[in-house]
Simulated scan of single mutants.
Amino acid sequence: MTESYGQNFNGQQPAQAFDAYGNPIPSDAKVMATLAHLSGLLGLVLTASFASFIGPLVFWFIYKDRPGYAFVRVAAAGAFNFSFTLWLVYIATILVTVLTLGFAGIFTWVIFLAIGVALLVLHILAAIKANQGEVYTYPMTIKLLS
């Protein structure tokens, strides 16, 4: 049985997807929101968590003013805010280690590990939620973008 473009096997149009705010989601918006969350992971891998906020920031700049893509803007803003918050913790931890002449390094490795695990787990969880059309709210973030 063949399928015509935009219809399922029963000959019916697929149901329109809506975000948590009741706005219709364009067909590619869920994919873009998922990629916005996963771009934080790309930054984690490429820069050892030092610049994991750059990918979501790029997505936010691209989709912040596009009509119908509020879902992507919110996803990218959430991913940026979370990654940037953890980046600030990362920088503060490095400063404490340097200011204590390395003595704090005995404990700061735990913070670095926690940052990496949090970035990995929560970005994946947020990407899964975005793929389902749900807005994910990251815990413990400083809200810079909306």
Rank of each mutant, 00 (worst) to 15 (best):
M1T: 13
S4E: 15
F9P: 09
N10A: 14
P14D: 03
N23H: 14
N23K: 12
P24L: 10
P24T: 12
I25H: 10
A29I: 02
A33V: 00
T34K: 08
A36N: 02
G40T: 06
G40A: 13
L41P: 00
L42W: 05
L42P: 00
G43N: 00
L44I: 06
L46A: 12
T47Q: 05
F50Q: 15
F50T: 13
L57I: 06
F59W: 13
I62R: 01
Y63H: 11
P67Q: 14
P67V: 11
G68P: 03
F71M: 06
V72F: 01
R73I: 03
A75C: 13
A77T: 01
A77G: 01
N81G: 01
S83D: 06
F84Q: 03
L86A: 10
I91E: 07
T93R: 03
T93H: 02
V96M: 04
T97C: 13
T97P: 08
L99M: 10
L101W: 05
F103A: 12
G105H: 02
W109F: 15
V110Q: 13
F112S: 06
G116R: 10
A118C: 14
L119S: 05
L120C: 08
L125G: 00
L125I: 11
L125C: 04
A127Q: 08
I128D: 01
I128M: 02
I128P: 05
A130H: 02
E134R: 01
V135H: 03
M140K: 09
M140C: 09
T141D: 03
